[in-house]
């Protein structure tokens, strides 16, 4: 199924990536060639195949629901591009 420009803009919106209008054409071309390649999978009948959900044969471990660290606010805020003493700062969302 070919992807048109509108579809690509919609997917970009979902992915929260703004796409430069000038680049939409080349992106459409690239993505369509990739999807043409991907769609080889349609040759295979997989009706009776169970999907793979884990590569290891064991199920995931459980751990105790315990606090193992904390009081590291400074470390967590350290790399934030915009912050005050206690919080991450984002553009205003509520008037």
């Amino acid at each position: 199924m070919p992807l048109d420009k509108e579809k690509i803009k919609h997917v970009a919106k979902l992915a929260r990536i703004s796409v430069d209008e000038a680049k939409v054409d080349s992106l459409t071309k690239d993505l369509n060639s990739i999807f043409k390649f991907i769609e080889q999978l349609n040759e295979l009948n997989t009706e009776k195949v169970e999907p793979l959900t884990s590569i290891l044969n064991e199920s995931l471990r459980f751990r105790k629901d315990q606090i193992s660290d904390g009081k590291i606010r400074e470390k967590i805020l350290k790399n934030s591009p915009k912050k005050n003493e206690e919080f991450f700062v984002v553009p205003k969302v509520v008037e």
């Binding site: 992807l3 579809k7 690509i8 997917v11 970009a12 979902l14 992915a15 990536i17 796409v19 992106l27 690239d30 993505l31 990739i34 999807f35 991907i38 999978l41 349609n42 295979l44 997989t46 195949v49 169970e50 999907p51 793979l52 959900t53």
Partner: peptide, 29 residues
Amino acid sequence: KRRILIGTYVLSSGYYDAYYLKAQKVRKL
């Protein structure tokens, strides 16, 4: 960006079965 867009598309509503689920089945094979 290309790969994020591919991934977002194959996981998006209405396409999940055709792409992602299909791929997980082939992965099993």
